[in-house]
Amino acid sequence: MQAEKLEPAATRAYHELERLIVTLELAPGTIATEGSLIDRLGLGRTPVREAIQRLAWEGLVEIRPRAGLAIAPLHPGDWLRVLDARRGIEVVLARSAARFVTRDAANQFHAAALAMQKAVIAADVLGFLAADKALDEALALAADNDFAARLAAPLQTHSRRFWFRYQRDTGLAASAEHHVALIRSILEHDEESAAQEAERLMAMLRAHAEAAATR
């Protein structure tokens, strides 16, 4: 609760809208209005508008003047495009995180790994998504490369959204295993192993995406 109070309203609005889009509570291809989102979040017009602008830049919503906000559609084939764009950046982040990881980042990695394992045991898909996002944030902090982290963040969000739509009912344990292996390599400061685990994680996700595209 204390952290939420300290978090800027625009950031809170962004995180909540991102969650609603990723979990399809704001359904793909539907139209929302700024007013309805303000009411739903219980936040002011300015922070919600700032969050919408950020989501539009990331390709999660399309602002249509006088028509509303179009939630990005989900086409299975686009998951492959997202992962092709994401793959190289994730390897860069993994290598850099293994080289520069700090104690604060290490604590975040430990917390993300524990949350992910608990989510698997409880079959808690939403908890798993939250842990996955926490892992991405730890990776961004540890890597000390704002350019790569800014490129990766929207791709990671799009990927989570596709995963939730097409893969959430299977493979939770296998996905957690790959993520935890990546965390372990980073905490051991093993750059080569971290890069390999990032590649394996992307390969697993790409296999899921290929299956979704051929359904």
Rank of each mutant, 00 (worst) to 15 (best):
R95V: 03
A115C: 04
L74V: 11
L139M: 13
E58F: 08
G68E: 02
A142D: 00
R64Q: 14
A56Y: 06
V82A: 11
N107Y: 07
F109A: 00
W79E: 05
H110L: 14
L139I: 03
I89Q: 08
L93I: 05
Q53W: 08
L114N: 11
K133S: 13
I71N: 06
A106F: 01
A72M: 12
D132W: 07
H110S: 11
A72H: 13
F128H: 11
V125A: 14
A112W: 02
A72V: 14
G59P: 08
V125I: 15
L69S: 05
A122T: 10
I52S: 06
A119E: 07
E58M: 08
A140M: 07
L60K: 06
A72F: 09
A70F: 06
A134E: 13
E62P: 01
V61P: 07
A105W: 03
D84Y: 09
D104W: 05
P73I: 10
L80Y: 02
D132T: 10
R66S: 14
A105S: 12
F100E: 08
A85N: 12
W79G: 02
A142W: 01
G68P: 01
V61H: 07
R66C: 04
A119R: 06
A106H: 03
R81N: 08
A98E: 02
L80D: 04
A138D: 04
G77A: 05
S96C: 04
A67I: 15
G59N: 09
A140K: 07
Q108E: 13
L139S: 02
L55T: 08
R95T: 06
V125W: 05
L69F: 06
E58Y: 08
D136P: 00
D104L: 11
Q108N: 10
I63Y: 10
R103I: 10
E90F: 08
D124V: 09
W79T: 03
V101F: 02
K133G: 12
I52M: 10
L126W: 05
A67E: 15
M116H: 06
D136A: 15
R103T: 13
V91D: 00
I52P: 04
E137K: 13
A130C: 01
E90R: 12
L135V: 01
D104H: 12
A112Q: 04
R99T: 13
L135R: 12
L55G: 09
A115R: 10
R95F: 03
A113L: 01
P65G: 03
H110G: 00
R66D: 13
D78E: 15
A106Q: 08
V82R: 11
L60Y: 07
L69T: 04
F100Y: 11
P76H: 02
R81F: 05
A105G: 03
K133D: 12
V125Q: 10
R95Y: 03
A113Y: 00
V120R: 07
I71M: 09
V82S: 08
L114H: 14
W79H: 04
A112F: 02
A138V: 05
Q108P: 00
A85P: 00
P65T: 10
A113V: 01
A142I: 02
E137D: 14
G88Y: 10
L114V: 15
I121V: 15
V92H: 06
Q117F: 00
L139H: 01
L141D: 11
V82L: 09
A105I: 04
V125H: 08
Q108S: 11
V120Y: 06
A98F: 02
A134R: 15
G77M: 00
